[in-house]
Design a protein around this nucleic acid. Structure first.
Length: 337
DNA sequence: AGCATTTGACCAAT
DNA sequence: ATTGGTCAAATGCT
């Protein structure tokens, strides 16, 4: 399967989704045939179990993609991609997409009486024009050190949004921030929006593309960029962290800690997450044209890598769409202004 | 004690 | 008028 998207990524995406659905139907048909004809699938090339899981996967992935695209129109996304990536870095980056979620919740904690201050609280500029990249991940860790500076209940959102800034904001003037929020449709995943890029030294020394080297366990995750939703979906098998619980400092020495996914999340110092995640962070510092994974030779699971050399790339990894193979789409936009 | 997090206030953007 | 991003005092944690 080879797809290269040019300009009209939306229609291509729809095409892909349709193909995926057709594939799912084929699996279901095979399944039906096997049942109707009492096929002994134990010796066959495809087992019932396999087919069932294929069907389930196919539909769930498609639904997932379509759901996440609801808020965004496909063409708009591609367009926004151009706008937001016209700057320095970012190839896997995406503009933030409105996340519509429902509301409720109210973690009533003790309310303190704050002195009525006349200081310049809340004085800020909304950074809407800044480069923002939104990803979806099971973890919020990356190679950077973050400090939480706020949390807000968001209208129509079940989960609060947490605000982080780079810990080097003050000593190095790093302006990178990120916002983290649990996804309502999939509370195991976080939507993480990065705003601005790290200018601190710590980020500059981070090795590039580490996670796509041999260390990377490509079985454990897939990278999926939904161009229509302007999101990157990162599936990882690392500890899950979440909200609604006391925030606990979490360390990321390795990913061997499967035991205590304290859903404290949104905390600071989520460092050393030696997985794909760190790579996304690293992308921030890379030039778009050099970001492509082309020569990285990720793993046996990721074949079919297509790319282009222009600066406006949009990479899409359809690892989700096939269990053990991933297809990377690197889209080129020629008509960048 | 020092640092990190929580959370209401503040206020720009919409 | 409402929403959401940021500030900073209060509080918690080590």
């Amino acid at each position: 399967m080879s797809i290269i998207l040019h300009e009209s990524s939306s229609s291509k995406m729809k095409e892909i989704l349709i193909k995926e659905l057709i594939q799912g139907k084929e699996y279901a048909t095979q399944l039906k045939f096997m049942f109707e004809n009492h096929v002994d699938h134990s010796n066959g090339s495809v087992s019932v179990k396999e087919l069932v899981s294929n069907v389930l996967r196919t539909f769930s992935e498609t639904i997932s993609v379509m759901t996440s695209s609801e808020a965004c129109n496909f063409d708009e996304v591609a367009q926004n991609h151009l706008v937001n990536n016209s700057g320095e870095e970012g190839s896997l980056v995406a503009a933030s997409c409105n996340d519509d979620v429902k509301s409720e919740d109210s973690s009533e904690s003790k309310k303190r009486l704050l002195p009525t201050t006349k200081d310049r609280r809340g004085s800020y500029k909304r950074r809407k024009t800044d480069e923002t990249r939104t990803i979806v991940s099971k973890t919020i860790g990356d190679n950077h050190s973050w400090r939480k500076y706020g949390q807000k209940e968001i209208l129509n959102s079940q989960f609060p949004r947490s605000y982080f800034r780079c810990t080097r904001k003050h000593d190095q003037g790093c302006k990178a921030t990120k916002q983290v929020q649990l996804i309502e449709e999939n509370p195991e995943m976080y939507q993480i929006t990065y705003i601005g890029f790290h200018t601190c030294k710590a980020s500059l020394q981070t090795p590039q593309m580490v996670a796509f080297s041999a260390d990377t366990n490509w079985d454990s995750f897939a990278v999926n960029h939904h161009p229509h939703s302007k999101e990157i979906v990162v599936h990882q098998d690392s500890p899950i962290i979440s909200s609604e619980r006391p925030i606990v400092k979490q360390e990321y020495p390795n990913n061997d800690d499967n035991t205590t996914p304290q859903r404290s999340d949104l905390t600071d110092n989520l460092l050393e997450d030696n997985n794909l995640w760190s790579d996304f962070k690293d992308f921030e510092l890379s030039k778009p044209a050099t970001l492509s994974f082309n020569n990285v030779a990720p793993s046996d699971n990721a074949d079919n890598v297509y790319s282009c050399t222009e600066s406006q790339n949009l990479e899409i990894d359809f690892g989700l769409f096939s269990e053990f193979k991933s297809l990377k789409l690197i889209c080129q936009f020629d008509d960048v202004e």
